[in-house]
């Protein structure tokens, strides 16, 4: 699950930051001449900076390979089910709410009044996909539900006083 990966990755890097700042604070009481420190650590910075840039480039390339904006390549005879979604204050008009597991679906999402957010939650209430629901524009969510169950649609963009009540169910058999 992406959320777990994000959380663990954050914890690892944040712990590293704690350790580095902690060590420097502990070493701050000693007093040494600044010039040799500068010389040594400027050199180290070149290495550290290069490693960081290469690491970020690698992560960028890896994570940009497959974007949620791109229509998947569907197999022959496997046409997607196109579902029209219109958000309004404070509810959802969804043209179809029952699907089959493994069925490719394209949610075409727009809004009748103000900006809303179309978030799909699985049975364990994990957010699995989302897009913005905007007036005058249509955003698309490409998704194939692998597991049967009852999924919930929650509003993910603040849209007024009953924003938190914009909940709808869809069923995957």
């Amino acid at each position: 699950m992406i959320q777990t990966v994000a959380w663990i990755t954050s914890l690892i890097f944040m712990s590293f930051v704690v350790i580095v700042f902690g060590i420097v604070a502990l070493k701050s009481k000693e007093k040494r001449d600044y010039e040799p420190i500068k010389k040594k650590w400027y050199k180290a910075r070149t290495f550290y900076g290069s490693v960081l840039v290469i690491f970020m480039l690698a992560v960028t390339i890896y994570t940009l390979r497959d974007l949620p904006y791109n229509q998947p390549v569907y197999g022959e005879g496997s046409e997607p089910t196109v579902v029209d979604v219109e958000a309004f204050q404070f509810g959802w008009n969804i043209s179809e709410t029952e699907f089959s597991a493994g069925e490719p679906i394209e949610f075409k999402v727009t809004a009748a009044d103000v900006t809303h957010g179309f978030g799909i939650y699985d049975e364990d209430m994990n957010l699995i996909a989302q897009t913005q629901a905007m007036p005058e524009y249509t955003n698309t969510v490409y998704i194939t539900f692998d597991e049967p169950g009852t999924y919930e649609i929650l509003c993910m963009e603040y849209c007024g006083l009953a924003h938190h009540l914009m909940i709808e169910e869809i069923v995957v058999k």
């Binding site: 992406i2 959320q3 994000a6 990755t9 954050s10 992560v59 994570t63 940009l64 497959d66 974007l67 949620p68 957010g117 978030g119 994990n126 957010l127 699995i128 996909a129 989302q130 993910m156 963009e157």
Partner: peptide, 14 residues
């Protein structure tokens, strides 16, 4: 981490 598009799809506005 949140600015990563594939992560943002499940973290945006959380």
């Amino acid at each position: 981490i949140d600015a990563t598009i594939v992560v943002n799809q499940v973290m945006h506005n959380t």
